[in-house]
Design a protein around this nucleic acid. Structure first.
Lengths: 225, 225
DNA sequence: CAATGTGAAGACCTTCACAGCC
DNA sequence: GGCTGTGAAGGTCTTCACATTG
């Protein structure tokens, strides 16, 4: 009766399908099979079918899925019918790159504000926005209806920024700082650590190098897409 | 007898522990318990113990783990005793930010080259490096001993770049382009899609908003760190 | 007959709880 | 006494395989 709880693993793949479906729609395709979708998304077709059936979606046996219907279905499940406002704290290298990144707007996320504490940065313009002081965070969250906070500060500042965000009512945080953040249970936090990704690759690189020398053991690849 | 196969989930957490341990070492701590490490890394202590025991590491009952020994152990497991060279393809917003990011060097990754195809970019300088043309990729991989390729191009160019990297002998790729890449099985690929992270957050944001209105269903938070 | 939707089996990961050791 | 290391139990996710249906 309730919108059925979508498994976490499925949630994390839905945006992927959405991207592929948008491409298909752009190419004029009107239907797609789980095989085709799987191929394009870099996953297995069984996974696609399980994932899509989890959101109660309608495919047609013998035919496949209706592309535009599926797009609507997934966007609705992910809450993308609403256009979220985000703000970015930390206007260093990464923060600036994120501010200029077109992909956010394309997918319905509006960068409402850029914040920093550095007086040489506050007041400057980046990507059509004026950098404002972190102290303005509560005001901005309220007036702009910000739902998601992005942390792109140095590690040392990240916890303070997270605390301020939580205090201002933000309950979804994307953390790029290389630091583990403590937040109340009701706050959802995701982290992206660039250096950690490289270290993980290092493990598999090393393992495969050993295997090639006859070290035995290891299996195959990891990635998918 | 063989370096025992470390579970993928464990591999993805080891860099996290390493970061925490480095902080502890910097603060002069010589031992750490699984509880303390778990707290600082944002995971459970059982997980920490399972993870560390997977790499055969020695803790001391009643005491905990020796910080510097554990650092060595993890670095060795991850292959971080070697200093890897990486290259970045695509010198747009994100590519430049990555090139300037200090965190890579701090953890032993040397950015050996920046590549692009845009003639207005080739020859310019970014973060002490001269941007070179993508056609030079095979030469650079050979002469610089590049092990990891980072793709920071637009989606449309990503597959071509991946193909070139694979052709040049690179077997580990970190992909920031919003595209699913097909690579041979022997190549390890990881992806980071900034917009996808936001879309995932959108789902939980929406779900929790519904729950707060009495929509029932949902559980707790997701994140950890 | 092509392709979905799904029980059932299997792999993987996490959590529990406690024996064992310093 | 405190903390590790680990079997066992419990979840979650993936894969299989096939009955079902337009």
């Amino acid at each position: 009766m309730n919108p059925r709880p979508v498994p976490d693993a499925t949630v994390s793949r839905l945006p992927l399908y959405l991207r592929v479906l948008a491409e298909l729609a752009g190419a004029g395709e009107t239907t797609v099979s789980s095989d085709e979708l799987a191929e394009a998304a870099g996953v297995t077709s069984a996974k696609v079918r399980k994932d899509l059936s989890a959101l109660g979606s309608y495919g047609t046996r013998g035919i496949g899925y209706d592309v535009s219907q599926l797009i609507d279905e997934i966007r609705s499940t992910l809450g993308l019918t609403e256009h979220w406002s985000i703000l970015i704290a930390g206007v260093g290298n990464l923060g600036q790159a994120l501010a200029r990144y077109k992909g956010f707007a394309e997918r319905g996320f509006r960068v409402a504000a850029l914040l920093d504490v550095d007086p040489t940065k506050v007041g400057t313009h980046v990507a059509d926005l004026t950098v404002r002081h972190l102290d303005e965070l509560p005001d901005i969250v309220r007036t702009e209806g910000v739902a998601i906070g992005v942390i792109a500060t140095p590690a040392a500042a990240a916890q303070d920024v997270a605390d301020r965000m939580v205090g201002a009512g933000i309950r979804s945080i994307l953390n790029f700082a290389p630091a583990s953040l403590a937040v109340p249970e009701a706050v959802t936090i995701r982290k992206v650590d660039l250096a950690i990704e490289l270290q993980i690759l290092s493990y598999y690189e090393q393992r495969d190098a050993l295997r090639d020398l006859g070290g035995g053991s290891g299996a195959g690849a990891i990635g998918g897409s």
